[in-house]
């Protein structure tokens, strides 16, 4: 199990003020992040750009040292023993990085295998299996520079599995991949976690990907953990109000006004909009039976009545908008006070 507590990373950076002037500034890339990854679990790390996802991954992969906080890797202090951690982890990043373009696919995997000290007989078999898994067995001896973007990404995935890691860090792994390859990769990620019991941390901009794959999600913003939980926990956190779509046969302005009065009797704060012959209702109250009761009372035939399930994507968009508003409010407040 990987467990980090109160992880923090600050950078001392030099900012240019002009041609010859500069000043030093301390940037808090990660302020306070605590999380945990269990074997066999796919954990999502979500956040808008600059939230601190990549810095967090770099600390977890021991590429950079945290400024403060603790990092336990299967009971071992990972900050003290980074070399031991490196043997049991790997990272797959999006894009076309992390592979040598002038080497062939086979040569790339062979070289990385040597760096991990894998026995040659084991390595040969593993390379063949990995190339088969990512569908590059027929292109094994071609230089990577002749590969398409998708092929390079697939090779990167094979590279990330070369040392048979116990924990895998996937940083936007499906960027640039077509739908078919993405589907295959998703299946592979699920199999790695559920069949091979590997712990996986996934960051992605594709929220559908996170929704589909992740057992547990951490949402970070501005270097801090905002919320954690399952997909449902997160959407519930953002969408505390229920959303309904309601329409009946012959629904006109009169019916709509009657509905408005009926709903407001139950929840005075409910928001009701009339669009394209449908009523869109947002309320803190459970309204399904109230809306059905209205139709019976008015002898109307219900065409549509359903409670909308918010997607994680909607939750993220709403959350980032809320945070932007909050930041703007804070700036305004400071300018007024100070």
């Amino acid at each position: 199990m990987i467990e980090v507590k109160n992880l923090k990373k600050t950078y001392d950076v030099k900012r240019r003020d002009g041609l010859f002037k500069s000043h030093r500034e301390t940037i808090e890339a990660v302020k306070d992040i605590s999380m945990r990854i269990d074997a066999g679990q796919i954990v999502g790390l979500l956040g808008i750009n600059g939230a601190g996802k990549t810095t967090t991954i770099k600390m977890l992969t021991t590429l950079i040292e945290p400024t403060s906080g603790t990092y336990s890797f299967d009971g071992m202090d990972a900050i003290v023993h980074p070399a031991e951690v490196k043997k049991q982890i790997n990272m797959i990043a999006g894009g076309e990085r992390m592979i040598y373009w002038r080497l062939s696919a086979y040569e790339n995997l062979w070289y990385y295998g040597q760096l991990y000290g894998i026995d040659n007989s084991v390595l040969k078999q593993r390379i063949e299996n990995l190339l088969k898994m990512v569908g590059l067995q027929d292109k094994a001896n071609l230089p990577v520079e002749t590969f398409s973007k998708g092929m390079k990404q697939r090779l990167q995935i094979a590279r990330g599995l070369i040392n048979d890691p116990k924990y895998i860090f996937l940083d936007e792994p499906t960027i640039g991949l077509d739908a078919v390859v993405t589907r295959e990769l998703h299946d592979e990620i699920k199999s790695l976690a559920k069949v091979k019991e590997k712990g996986i941390l996934l960051t992605s901009h594709y929220l559908s990907e996170v929704e589909e794959l992740c057992d547990y999600i951490y949402l970070v913003n501005n270097g801090e953990l905002i919320v954690e939980g399952t997909k449902k926990d997160l959407t519930d956190f953002v969408f505390l109000r229920n959303q309904y779509v309601f329409s009946t046969k012959g629904m006109d302005k009169n019916v709509y006004n009657g509905l408005k009065r009926h709903v407001r009797n139950v929840d005075n704060d409910a928001e009701i909009l009339f669009e394209n012959g449908k009523a869109m209702i947002t309320s803190n109250v459970e309204l399904s039976t109230i809306l059905a009761g209205f139709a019976i009372q008015e002898s109307l035939t219900i065409v549509e009545l359903h409670k909308m399930e918010p997607s994680l994507e909607q939750a993220m968009i709403k959350l980032s908008k809320d945070m932007k508003k909050e930041a703007e409010r804070e700036i305004l407040y400071k300018s007024l006070v100070g």
Partner: peptide
């Protein structure tokens, strides 16, 4: 773009 993958190896 291979510095990170290189540094990841022990």
């Amino acid at each position: 773009g291979t510095l990170e993958s290189l540094m990841l190896a022990p």
